[in-house]
């Protein structure tokens, strides 16, 4: 399955605004997502904004990127244009949320 638009956008922005190459940018974002319990293929823009606010700045700091928080705020702002693709109706958490309300 292809990576989500939010993931691709953040990786591209990170590559543009830092010294990271494509692989480093994607790897850094993937690590932040793993720490957050999220997956590149299904993350929504809303979830990505939380990761950019709470997780990615620390990942950037460990890689020597200065002013990571400000950078993440700029990247988060660039996500506003993305359609708020709801996490797939059949994602495991959506399914289990539905199943508990059966009846």
């Amino acid at each position: 399955m292809a990576d989500s638009e939010a993931f691709v956008r953040v990786c591209e922005k990170l590559e543009q605004e830092t010294d990271f190459d494509r692989l480093e940018a994607r790897g850094t974002v993937r690590l932040a997502l793993k720490e957050s319990g999220l997956e590149p293929r299904s993350i929504t823009p809303a979830q990505m904004k939380v990761v950019l606010e709470k997780v990615l700045p620390a990942e950037l700091a460990t890689r020597g990127v200065a002013e990571g928080e400000a950078l993440c705020r700029r990247i988060a702002a660039s996500l506003s244009g993305l359609a708020s693709e709801a996490e797939g109706g059949d994602s495991p958490d959506a399914v289990f949320a539905r199943l508990g309300g059966a009846g």
């Binding site: 957050s36 319990g37 999220l38 997956e39 939380v50 709470k54 495991p92 958490d93 289990f96 949320a97």
Partner: peptide, 29 residues
């Protein structure tokens, strides 16, 4: 798969991105 996803959901919960009841549902199942 449920335990694996429960681990992911716990990390989401810490960020305010998950419902604690759904997180628990993965563990129970």
């Amino acid at each position: 798969e449920s335990f694996r996803y429960h681990g992911m959901m716990r990390r989401r919960l810490a960020l305010g991105l998950a419902d604690p009841i759904v997180v628990n549902r993965f563990l129970l199942w």
